[in-house]
Structures are given as structure tokens and as C-alpha cells.
């Protein structure tokens, strides 16, 4: 069944989009990630213009992170204060990101920049995760107990000034890295259409030493607001949010997430991480190939005067 997307201005198949949403929802439920980093490239592969894929991806991320944050709020595994400071940084980063987005669009370099960012970030994160999970798998196979890093170890981040106490996270840390992390994620959110959980979660655990139980809830909480802000600014400045497209993805996504979560419980942690790493790398390689393959048309037309 075909449907015409009013903003993307192309006809697409409803079931393909629902299936795409469900598949990404399944994976995000299984791995506990938002799925924005999969949705946006998939939409681009499905010929949705990158500018619209990014803005709509941000809109879709709200649904999955809102649903997830509600569960964490109920369980009390959500640090509002930490989330709030991250969010303050996120708004600044997102505003800068939207400005860069509009500038790149005017220069005709937006598509390239989005692809490059995806290749570099997904390649790095996927590569690191794969190495780490394969090492863990090998260690568990040889029977040795996994070597745990000592918690409470302090690094240079803990020597920075302007310290603030975060009770729920049992943390006393400078606000500079927290604001900086929020800003970085906000920037990526507006340019890549991702929630940023795949960077936020490891950064909170390894850099700020936030206890693992509050990390996901807090990350989801800040992602809701950063993506909501990103969606709103994209809607007002670039008019690139397609609600119909976003709704189809969300509908498939919330259903798929439940089955994914169930499937995820049957797999072991390292196996899960190795699978996710391979998936992330596959998306990065697919995007990288497109950068190097000679395009069918060297010339492209776009409306002038987008400024």
C-alpha cells in the first residue's frame, strides 16, 4: 500500500516503513539503545532526502526514549539533576548543530557531512565495542574471571573546578564535562538525527563514573528533551520534519521494542554487544561504500536561496 509523504514529497510503501520501524524497535529493545543511528541511515538508503531523514529521525527518537524513560522513572533509576545539567548543554549544542546544518545545506555539503559523521562515529564505536566484546567472549571461554576495573578511580575530569553534587548518582563532579557532554550529544542529535545514547551511555559510565543503574534512565530523560528541541527547531527553520513518516516508524517501533526486549533476555551480555557492534559496523561500511562508489549522476539540482 503506497502512501505519499507530504514533506519528503515521495511515495513510499506503508508496510516497508512499518517493518523498518519494527525491525529497529526490535533491535533497540534487544540492545537498549534508541535506534536513531539505525533509522536515519535506513531512511537514506530508502531514498528519503538526508535532511528529512535526520529531522524525522529526531522526532521518532522521542517516542522510544519517552516510553523507556517512563519505566525508569517508575523504578526511580533516573537522576533529574544530572539529566537537567546535561540538557542545558544539549540545548546549546543542538542550537549550534541546527546552524551548521542550515549552513551545510546552503553550501550543498550536508549529505556528505552526514555520511562522514556516521561513518566515523559508527565505525569508531562499533570497532571499539567489537574488540571489547570479543575479548570478553574469549576470556569467558578460557574460564578466567573477567577483570573488573576498580571503581572510584579518579581521572583528570575529577580535578576540574565548579563541582556540583548529584545525589541520585552519588556523584560530586565538575559541571564542565557534564555540560560539554550534553552539548556534544545535542550537536550530533541535530545533525545526525540520533538520540546519542550509544555515545552518552559509555561516556557517563567510563568518563563520569555514573552508577550503571541510573545511566540509561538519565540518558533517556535528556534525549527526550534534546530530540524534542531538535525536532522543534528543524520544524521551524528547515520544515524538514515529516509527521506521517515519523508516525509510521514510531508505530512499528513501539511494537517491535517489546519483542526485542524479550529476545534480548535470552542472550548473554557479551554476545549481545558483539552482535550490536557488528550491526553498527555494517551500517558504517554501507555508508562508506556510497562515498567512494562513482554516483550515477555527477550533477545535481537544488533550489537556490535556501538562506
Amino acid at each position: 500500500m503506497g502512501i505519499y509523504l507530504p514533506i519528503a514529497e515521495i511515495s513510499v510503501n506503508v508496510f516497508v516503513l512499518l517493518a523498518m520501524g519494527a525491525a529497529v524497535g526490535f533491535l533497540s529493545g534487544m540492545f537498549g539503545v534508541g535506534g536513531g543511528f539505525l533509522i536515519t541511515p535506513l531512511l537514506i538508503f530508502y531514498n528519503i532526502p538526508p535532511a528529512i531523514a535526520v529531522a524525522t529521525g529526531a522526532n521518532q527518537v522521542i517516542a522510544s526514549s519517552f516510553s523507556g524513560a517512563l519505566s525508569h522513572f517508575k523504578r526511580g533509576t533516573l537522576d533529574f539533576k544530572l539529566g537537567g545539567v546535561l540538557l542545558a548543554g544539549g540545548i546549546v549544542g543542538s542550537t549550534a548543530g541546527i546552524y551548521v546544518f542550515a549552513l551545510l545545506r546552503r553550501l550543498g555539503q550536508l549529505d556528505l557531512f552526514i555520511s562522514l559523521l556516521y561513518v566515523v562515529l559508527l565505525g569508531t564505536v562499533g570497532g571499539l565495542m567489537l574488540v571489547e566484546s570479543l575479548n570478553a567472549l574469549r576470556a569467558s571461554r578460557s574460564g578466567a574471571a573477567p577483570v573488573l576495573k576498580k571503581s572510584g578511580q579518579h581521572n583528570w575530569i575529577h580535578r576540574l573546578p565548579f563541582k556540583m553534587r548529584f545525589r541520585a548518582s552519588k556523584l560530586f563532579v565538575s559541571v564542565i564535562p557534564v555540560l560539554g557532554l550534553g552539548a556534544g550529544i545535542g550537536f550530533l542529535s541535530s545533525i545526525m538525527g540520533v538520540g546519542g545514547g550509544f555515545i552518552m551511555v559509555p561516556a557517563l559510565i567510563y568518563l563520569l563514573k555514573v552508577p550503571t543503574n541510573v545511566v540509561i534512565g538519565t540518558s533517556l530523560f535528556q534525549i527526550i528533551f534534546t530530540s524534542a528541541y531538535t525536532t522543534l527547531v528543524h520544524a521551524t527553520t528547515n520544515q524538514t520534519v515529516d509527521v506521517i513518516l515519523a508516525f509510521l516508524l514510531m508505530a512499528g517501533g513501539v511494537a517491535g521494542a517489546q519483542y526485542g526486549a524479550k529476545a534480548g533476555q535470552r542472550l548473554r551480555g557479551e554476545q549481545l554487544r558483539a552482535l550490536l557492534a557488528m550491526l553498527v559496523l555494517a551500517v558504517a561500511i554501507r555508508l562508506a561504500v556510497d562515498l567512494f562508489v562513482t554516483p550515477p549522476n555527477l550533477y545535481s539540482l537544488s533550489a537556490a536561496g535556501l538562506n
Binding site: 522526532n59 517516542a63 524534542a228 520544524a235 515519523a246 514510531m250
Partner: peptide
């Protein structure tokens, strides 16, 4: 768009 996303998530 934001409200729709939150409603769908909820």
C-alpha cells in the same frame, strides 16, 4: 510532532 511522539511512546 513532539506530542504525537510522546503519545505514541506512552
Amino acid at each position: 510532532a513532539i506530542s504525537l511522539a510522546m503519545l505514541t511512546g506512552w
